[in-house]
Computed example of a mutant assay.
Amino acid sequence: MKAASTVPATLDSRELLKVLSGFRKGDFSLRMPTDRVGVAGKIADTLNEILELNDSLSKELERISRVVGKEGKLTQRATLGSSSNGWKACIDSINSLISDLVQPSNEMSRVIGGVAKGDLSQSMALEVDGRLLRGEFLRTAKLVNTMVDQLNSFASEVTRVAREVGTEGKLGGQAVVKGVAGTWKDLTDRDNSMAGNLTNQVRNIAAVTTAGWISSTRSPRK
């Protein structure tokens, strides 16, 4: 008769060290043998489950980095099956980070989309869920809002000058846009230059016409 095969009831310390060393170095593909029984078997199975969870987490983070960061799918979030406790906290933290990064992008898209449609009344919120923006988020929001405010001021002033000079006949009107520089200032100066030239032309025509009329009234009758 053949002797009955025995199932190892202890762990090979060298094998365990190899798996743990690989785990420490970030190699989550290693596994303990699954043929152990008793406490040794439970230790091996538990370690394998930990390795599988870390492997799944690593792959999920790689996936979410690709779909959100590179493919622009901003509604995607990380998942890790029925994880709990620290594992769930890790996933929740990643998803919270994604949401915090995506929210300013969505706000910026909303405001710029409004500008593209001619709606200059939009502005980026400076707080989210009652929490004030900070750091680069706050700086970006203020920059976008300043840009929209300046564009709104410029549009309002150009409209005002065009109405006063062109429609109401109030010659000499000039656009005043506070705090502008660069192209904004150039556009304002050009608008004012155009309004000034138009005013001068009208006044010159009026002066010539008036002079001609006065001259004709003073000429002796034959």
Score class of each variant (00 low, 15 high):
residue 1 M to F: 09
residue 1 M to W: 08
residue 2 K to R: 14
residue 5 S to T: 14
residue 6 T to Q: 12
residue 6 T to Y: 08
residue 7 V to D: 12
residue 12 D to E: 14
residue 12 D to M: 07
residue 13 S to P: 02
residue 13 S to K: 13
residue 14 R to F: 10
residue 14 R to Y: 09
residue 16 L to F: 13
residue 16 L to C: 12
residue 20 L to T: 04
residue 20 L to C: 04
residue 21 S to K: 00
residue 21 S to W: 00
residue 23 F to L: 10
residue 26 G to D: 00
residue 26 G to S: 01
residue 29 S to W: 00
residue 31 R to C: 03
residue 36 R to K: 14
residue 37 V to D: 10
residue 39 V to P: 01
residue 41 G to L: 05
residue 41 G to F: 03
residue 42 K to M: 12
residue 43 I to D: 04
residue 45 D to M: 06
residue 45 D to V: 10
residue 45 D to R: 14
residue 47 L to C: 06
residue 49 E to S: 15
residue 51 L to E: 05
residue 53 L to S: 13
residue 54 N to Y: 12
residue 57 L to F: 14
residue 62 E to G: 02
residue 64 I to D: 10
residue 64 I to W: 06
residue 66 R to C: 05
residue 66 R to Y: 12
residue 68 V to Y: 13
residue 69 G to S: 08
residue 70 K to S: 05
residue 71 E to R: 14
residue 74 L to S: 11
residue 75 T to S: 15
residue 79 T to V: 11
residue 82 S to K: 13
residue 84 S to H: 09
residue 88 K to E: 12
residue 89 A to K: 11
residue 89 A to I: 04
residue 90 C to N: 05
residue 90 C to D: 01
residue 91 I to W: 02
residue 95 N to I: 02
residue 97 L to T: 06
residue 100 D to F: 03
residue 100 D to R: 06
residue 102 V to M: 04
residue 102 V to Q: 05
residue 102 V to R: 03
residue 108 M to F: 09
residue 109 S to H: 06
residue 110 R to P: 00
residue 110 R to F: 02
residue 113 G to L: 02
residue 113 G to K: 03
residue 114 G to C: 04
residue 114 G to Y: 01
residue 115 V to H: 00
residue 115 V to F: 10
residue 117 K to Y: 00
residue 117 K to S: 09
residue 119 D to S: 05
residue 120 L to Q: 01
residue 121 S to I: 01
residue 122 Q to R: 13
residue 122 Q to S: 07
residue 123 S to G: 00
residue 124 M to R: 02
residue 124 M to C: 14
residue 128 V to A: 05
residue 129 D to M: 03
residue 129 D to S: 13
residue 129 D to G: 10
residue 130 G to D: 06
residue 136 E to I: 09
residue 137 F to D: 14
residue 140 T to C: 06
residue 147 M to S: 15
residue 149 D to F: 02
residue 149 D to A: 15
residue 151 L to S: 08
residue 151 L to E: 05
residue 152 N to R: 15
residue 154 F to K: 04
residue 155 A to L: 01
residue 155 A to C: 04
residue 156 S to R: 12
residue 158 V to C: 06
residue 159 T to N: 09
residue 161 V to H: 04
residue 161 V to D: 01
residue 162 A to P: 01
residue 164 E to F: 04
residue 167 T to R: 10
residue 168 E to M: 11
residue 169 G to L: 05
residue 171 L to S: 08
residue 172 G to H: 12
residue 173 G to N: 11
residue 173 G to M: 12
residue 174 Q to I: 09
residue 176 V to H: 15
residue 178 K to N: 14
residue 179 G to H: 10
residue 181 A to H: 07
residue 183 T to W: 07
residue 184 W to R: 08
residue 185 K to R: 14
residue 185 K to T: 02
residue 185 K to D: 07
residue 186 D to S: 13
residue 189 D to Y: 12
residue 190 R to V: 07
residue 192 N to W: 08
residue 194 M to D: 07
residue 195 A to W: 12
residue 195 A to I: 09
residue 196 G to Q: 14
residue 198 L to V: 11
residue 199 T to D: 11
residue 202 V to T: 08
residue 203 R to E: 11
residue 204 N to I: 03
residue 206 A to F: 09
residue 208 V to T: 13
residue 209 T to Y: 04
residue 210 T to K: 15
residue 210 T to I: 01
residue 211 A to R: 11
residue 213 W to F: 11
residue 216 S to C: 00
residue 217 T to Q: 11
residue 218 R to Q: 08
residue 219 S to P: 00
residue 219 S to N: 04
residue 221 R to F: 03
